[in-house]
């Protein structure tokens, strides 16, 4: 193992143990690792944003093409982005609103089209299928359960009508479907977290302890 790997493994292992110490109770080691995690995460996203968003979309095109008509809109975007920071200058803080308005406006416009065309219509179309199942009983049953599930869940989310009588009963069936969905999601989450935990223990036992023992001449 190279020096940076050994040092890195020790840092990672000690930080892992610091965080796990929370299982005993809140303590300064946990809070140290927690604060470091918050800072490192933020720094990580600074690097990723600069390298993968601003560099390929703004810095490189401007450096390669220079100040030409083709890059005018990129310079405009840079100015709009910088204008967001005027919020820290009290006298002209309202300048930032225009940048925010453009940014929010564009993404809500995109979002509206994407949600309707990319989610509502395909999901509704996939629900409205031939209930006969082309002669396959299981397929017909599944399509029927799917249709009932989608309609009753939507009825549960429809709050303009009081949930009583026939509507209330239908929305109750919707709750059963939702509970099943939440149960499944919960089960998946548990499996995911336990798998992460196993990964951390593997790291501690195999990479850290095993690696250290191996470097000291113990084990194969």
């Amino acid at each position: 193992m190279a020096g940076y790997e050994v040092f890195g493994t020790w840092v990672a292992a000690l930080l892992t143990l610091c965080l796990m110490s929370f299982l005993y109770k809140d303590n300064p080691f946990f809070r140290f690792a927690e604060a470091l995690f918050a800072g490192v995460s933020l720094g990580y996203y600074i690097g990723i944003t600069l390298d993968q968003t601003l560099r390929p979309n703004l810095f490189i095109p401007l450096a390669e093409q220079g100040v030409t008509g083709d890059t005018a809109h990129l310079r405009f975007a840079g100015l709009v982005g910088l204008n967001l920071y005027t919020r820290y200058i009290p006298k002209i803080a309202w300048f930032a609103r225009s940048s925010l308005a453009l940014y929010v406006g564009y993404y809500v416009g995109i979002n509206m089209v994407q949600k309707l065309q990319g989610e509502v219509l395909p999901q509704a179309a996939a629900t409205m299928v031939d209930l006969s199942g082309d002669g396959n009983v299981m397929s017909a049953f599944n399509s029927f359960v799917m249709l009932v599930g989608v309609i009753t869940v939507l009825m549960y989310f429809f709050f303009s009508v009081e949930h009583k009588g026939g509507f209330g009963k239908a929305s109750r069936i919707g709750i059963w479907f939702l509970m099943l969905g939440f149960g499944a999601a919960f089960g998946y989450t548990v499996m995911g977290r336990v798998s992460l935990l196993i990964g951390r223990f593997n790291f501690i036992v195999i990479q850290w302890i095993g690696g250290t023992l191996q470097s000291l001449g113990f084990g194969g």
Binding site: A126, V150, T152, L180
Partner: peptide, 19 residues
């Protein structure tokens, strides 16, 4: 199937709300 139906209902409801 049942989980798919619930997720589909949630997706349609949330997408309509977002739109």
């Amino acid at each position: 199937v049942p989980n798919g139906a619930a997720q589909r209902g949630i997706i349609i409801g949330a997408a309509l709300g977002a739109a």
